[in-house]
Amino acid sequence: METKRLDTNQIMRQVIYALVLGVGAQIYFFGSSVIVQIILASITAIIAEAVFLQIRGVKIKPAIMDGSAILTAILLAISIPSIAPWWVVVLGVLFAIIFGKQIFGGLGNNPFNPAMLGYAFLLISYPVQMTQWPGEFISFSQGIDVIFGLNNVDGLTGATRLDDVKTQLMLGTQIRDINLESVSQLWINVGFLLGGIYLLLRRIIFWQIPFSLLLGLILMSAALFFIDPSQFTSPYFHLANGATMLAAFFIATDPVSASTTPRGRVIYGFFIGTLIVIIRVFGGYPDAVAFAVLLMNITVPLIDFYTQPKVFGK
């Protein structure tokens, strides 16, 4: 087989295509308002990027066309609740593009995953809006109403299964009395998993990060589960809930902020996996992907330095 020559735009485009299944599952279960979020986020990202490139005196067109800003916007848009008010996503994207990327000199120079930086910022600043997920299918017009504040969110929201389990555990309920099943979460995760496999097959991403991330997540949760099954949920629960698959295949694999050496990627992924479980179980927030990824972003230079491959003949 001939060695393929990809280009940066293609990579970004392929990643966006691969998101279709997961987003499709979101739409199927919770309605198309996530599309509104994606559009809002993309427009904001392009405008913010253009303004900043102008300020930095860089040619706008090629830099916008690389697709990275839109990808950041989409990842952020599908991570936040699809009924969050419009200004939440706009603020998040602005934060992601400006403080996550352009401040450091644009694509390729950012130490943090911009989408996750935006997400963490939103979660810390607007915890209420960021944890109100739609409880059921919401029609497009309903979605529009809620997003643009024309209607009240009351009655539409519910907690995610992760959130729910957490609250119940805090109230002292035993695991076996809690309903752990969530069909929607399962299928959304399956959607992202399939998309991820597509990327692996197209050789857009390498196996190391997703594989070791899932391994870390399984091992950590299995260890806890083994210690006390009445307090801790099973590995399966962690795999099928929250943004696990999205994180494994789309977020942690963001090349810019991840480790670049083959061994480094294994370490990087593994620790994100374990951190996700730890923060989910012991932390104060419902999901943990953003914090786990950001924490590991800090360690990337260190990991890269210590995992340089053995050079030929050395």
């Binding site: 963490a120 810390i124 915890p127 932390g283 104060g284 927030y285 914090f291 924490l295």
Partner: peptide, 9 residues
């Protein structure tokens, strides 16, 4: 919020 800040610090 407090958790995150303290962990990070």
């Amino acid at each position: 919020m407090f958790d995150a800040t303290s962990t990070l610090s």
